[in-house]
Write a protein that binds this DNA or RNA. Structure first.
Lengths: 309, 309
DNA sequence: CTGTTAGCGCATTCAG
DNA sequence: CTGAATGCGCTAACAG
């Protein structure tokens, strides 16, 4: 018991005994068995989960770093899972996490129905969403200012005199896809400009597709004079097409990326720090775990700023 | 007991009872308590650790994905830790992992002395190294063919007729730094070419430093006609300097990177798949955990191939 | 301040 | 094939 108390920083241990314990612990290399500890108390001690859709994507790996850094600062460790956009796998992972009685999880959701992420379905384990707002569930969440970033990008083009602007969007079943499109169309409408359906695309799978679509846009009878790409892959594809066509079309894009400054033309990107998203989500989770009262859910939005290359 | 047996796939349960259990489990949403499970058996059930030096680095996040994918295939989960190159933190993380009685860990080591990674120091927990060979400890390991890749890059330059070749190296306290340099010098020696100390550099901290050093190289009285960069950051820095100087200097580099095809000059890179490194390490760990006999340690080397842009 | 008792939920062992 | 007894290592609650 004295050992247990000492290692738990219980003040009810005399100083001489405390020292004797610490000395012996150091000499023997003794470590508490965390499995027994968490069994006894019914809670995991210092493990939080992180579920992302694609760990190889730099956005999510940086987010993971943010979660890890916050967790480390609080003596916690991070159990990670990759869903590859598969909702079934997401459900499975979280059920596993709950069975391990971990403290909670940060989730980048794969789907748009989040009922299976409610604590009621996970033995009371709390979940914080990252990158998407909760749907059909009351959950803490951290978002990126997708609307604001896209709005600012569009506004910059409009202020520079562009009237025909092409938009390389993301699938609209993604929150991010909807918001970035909305930012674009709102800015256009505010300037009294019309958004031509012909100049807007959503089903862009990869860099090559973005390049093809941009090439088609540039070959129109009335091609756009500028293009707004909704993420960095679309930006890259558009850049290739523009460069190939030597068209002088202006380009702005959401997401910063390494080597953006190596391109041959001016580029403005809407940038933000993914580690901040992760850290903020971990912080919300931390608060939620400590919250004895079931307080209202909270939402945080991470700011986006323009960066000119 | 019948529930316990059923959930453990113990064949000693009658079919009707098995079904009744499974039905009830489904109806109630019951899940075994993994903490109790691992307490009882003294082993963690299906958690492996992963310790990397920098999760935000795409190399390590892809490695992490490889580990996660292998683990998922075997019903395991991954506890992740970031050392930020801090050996003390590495030691701490692994001691924590051991205290949690996880099955084992894949470690990208921060230092060159691996004695603290021996099972004897970690309550018997096995460790597999990734990216560096074991030093002062007998450990399974997965390496990349750094020597072969650098050798192939140098050989390509030599075959193209280059005689004065600059080398942008990595710190030689890193295994990778030593091996890539050795690949370069070996190829040069085999071709009867001398390696000028003036054209070789090691203490390159970031892209900007690589750019500065390359600029200095190009301003020499006898500048190199080609440059071999030992990783993708050095390649990027060298590219900037070459492009700025409009010198026409040839460039090859270790590591593939996204957008390498966007550059204005031909580029050859030594490429490999980091997820393969992670998957191979997880596989070695898996074998080691299952190995009842303390078999000899094993080492695997992942192949590198040239890719021409 | 320190020690004793009891139990967290599971799986091993042994009886039936 | 099924169940009862027991203990994994720790800590809450209580007694001294």
């Amino acid at each position: 018991m004295t050992v247990s108390r000492t290692l738990r920083d219980d003040p009810a241990v005399s100083e001489p005994n405390r020292q004797r314990v610490l000395d012996s612990v150091a000499a023997l290399g003794y470590r508490r068995n965390e499995a027994a500890r968490s069994l006894r108390s019914g809670r995991s001690h210092g493990i939080i989960g992180l579920v992302v859709t694609n760990l190889a994507n730099p956005f999510y790996s940086q987010l993971a770093l943010g979660v890890e850094q916050f967790a480390a600062k609080h003596g916690q460790q991070v159990l990670i899972g990759n869903t590859a956009e598969d909702v079934e796998r997401e459900r499975e992972l979280l059920a596993d996490f709950a069975a391990r009685r971990i403290d909670g999880a940060v989730v980048v959701p794969a789907g748009t129905d989040h009922r299976h992420l409610r604590p009621a379905h996970l033995q009371g384990m709390p979940v914080v969403l990252a990158g998407a707002p909760p749907r059909r569930a009351a959950l803490d969440h951290v978002l990126v200012d997708d609307f604001g970033g896209a709005h600012a990008l569009a506004t910059q083009l409009i202020d520079a005199g562009h009237k025909r602007i092409g938009f390389l969007g993301l699938p609209t079943h993604l929150w991010t896809g909807v918001e970035r499109l909305r930012g674009f169309t709102t800015a256009m409408a505010a300037a009294g400009l019309s958004t031509k359906p012909k100049l807007i695309d959503h089903h862009i799978a990869d860099i090559a597709a973005a390049q093809d679509i941009t090439r088609d846009l540039l070959e129109l009878a009335h091609p756009p004079t500028a293009i707004l790409a909704a993420n960095n892959r679309n930006t890259m594809g558009a850049y290739r097409a523009i460069r190939h066509a030597k068209s002088g079309t202006a380009l702005v894009g959401f997401d910063d990326f390494e080597f953006a400054d190596l391109l041959d033309q001016p580029l403005t990107v809407a940038a933000y720090d993914p580690t901040e998203v992760g850290a903020a989500a971990a912080a919300l989770l931390h608060d939620r775990v400590l919250a004895t009262n079931r307080s209202r859910t909270r939402g945080i939005t991470i700011a986006v700023h323009l960066k000119h290359y």
